[in-house]
């Protein structure tokens, strides 16, 4: 059973800030992508927790139940998860290319090799 309260938002904020901190403070590009993924998942948890209705069940129609959780955020987040994977794949491919061009995946070493950036 799920207690009512605001704690779901606080968990989301903590996760979101952890991801945000990784993206800002770390120069390693792979770790930046991991940070972005954490941020992304925290937004997913925010949406899904908004759609939860207490004493309701998963939105699959059945004679035995009359209360369902809100299906619309589920659909939106389903789309967002798949799009998120597509963008991470693109980011990781960019990292592989950067590694081939500069020989490093650290942000400041790339900038040091290329003064125009």
């Amino acid at each position: 059973m799920i207690e009512p309260g605001l704690y779901n938002y606080w968990i989301v904020v903590i996760l979101m800030m952890a991801g945000f901190f990784i993206v800002m403070s770390h120069g390693n590009l792979v770790k930046k992508i991991v940070g972005l993924n954490i941020f992304q998942t925290s937004v997913f948890i925010l949406y899904i927790s908004l759609s939860k209705v207490s004493d309701a069940t998963a939105p699959i129609l059945d004679e035995a139940y009359s209360e369902y959780s809100n299906p619309l955020p589920h659909v939106l987040i389903l789309t967002a998860i798949v799009v998120g994977v597509a963008t991470s794949a693109l980011g990781l491919a960019l990292i592989v290319r950067i590694r081939e061009a500069y020989g490093t995946v650290e942000e400041d070493e790339v900038i040091a090799q290329d003064p125009d950036l």
Partner: peptide, 18 residues
């Protein structure tokens, strides 16, 4: 967490894709 929040489809996708 998604299963706990009644979002079974999202949980499938997150486990497989994420």
């Amino acid at each position: 967490i998604f299963v706990q929040l009644d979002a079974v489809d999202v949980a499938f996708t997150e486990a497989a894709v994420g």
